[in-house]
Amino acid sequence: MHSFIPPERFFPYLTWTEVQAMPDKANVVLVQPLGAIEQHGPHLPLIVDAAIGGAVLGKALQQLEASVPAYALPPLYYGKSNEHWHFPGTITLSAQTLLATISEIAESVYRAGFRKLVLMNSHGGQPQVLEIAARDLHVKYEDFSIFPLFVWQAPHIAKELLSPQELKLGIHAGDAETSLMLAILPNQIRMEKAIAEYPPEQPEGSLLSIEGKLPFAWTTRDLSQSGVIGDPTTASAEKGDRLLESLAAGWVQVIRDVYAFQPPRQR
């Protein structure tokens, strides 16, 4: 049941009496992985986002020193994926359902005495929902610290491994995700079906982009016929191993920082 997560760090394996007796619960770090079940082109399985988040968190928790109390909650596999719903297999929650689910999970752990919750998101279509949930929960419970974080926000070495075009435009099922999946779940990858497809770029000089400071709303069908936005044909397990190691190391530091975090108070 724990998948990539070390069993001693998997919250559901605890008993209620162990949770009740846990010392210094206000500083124990709980991590809620959030992924998606959505199309990732003809070569990758639907579980990509959830698998990457789980693998990164699992390796980070393996490397984390035992003196830092941190546990993984069960992953939430479904997310807000309606930008992909023109492609069969995508399963999506509404923003309202995802917001309610996150909020009710958070309130449950708060009721048990925990005060630090990381929302570890690995799907690019839902960071805004997590940010709204985190802010509203903190407004409701001022002593509750919520961290709405994206897997790829931790330090990593993608710039050393990917082409400039891929770094700019390879946002879905491209080199990075395919390389990670070749390292994580190689038997589920259909590399013979991998194709490269980049979205049309905006006119020269335009400030608008599909992602960034001045984005516009889009669905995947607007940008890609295959569901791929990037170039997976250059992916390799070796790149995936290096990406995974760097992301995990970054997340070790993230968890340490959350454990040491003290909420700012305006005097």
Rank of each mutant, 00 (worst) to 15 (best):
P155E: 09
A112T: 02
H84Y: 11
S81V: 13
K80H: 13
T92G: 07
T101L: 15
K159F: 12
A95I: 11
Q96E: 14
S108G: 13
H123R: 07
A154Y: 05
G125Q: 07
G89V: 06
K159R: 14
L93H: 04
V151I: 09
L130S: 02
M120C: 10
K159C: 07
S145G: 11
R135E: 04
L117R: 10
I146G: 04
P88S: 14
I91M: 07
A112V: 02
H138A: 06
Q128I: 09
L130W: 07
G89N: 07
I91G: 00
T97Y: 12
I102V: 15
G113P: 01
V139R: 08
L119H: 09
A134G: 07
Q126R: 06
P148E: 13
Q96F: 12
G113L: 09
H84L: 14
S103E: 12
V139P: 00
I102Q: 05
N121S: 05
S108T: 13
A154G: 11
F114T: 00
H123Y: 08
P127R: 10
A100G: 08
V129D: 01
P148I: 12
P127S: 04
F114E: 00
N82T: 15
I105S: 01
S103W: 11
L117M: 11
Q96V: 10
I102T: 07
S108N: 13
L99N: 06
E83M: 14
A95P: 00
D143A: 08
E131R: 08
F150W: 12
W152E: 05
L117A: 08
H84C: 13
E142I: 11
Y141Q: 00
A106Q: 03
W152D: 06
I146V: 15
A154F: 03
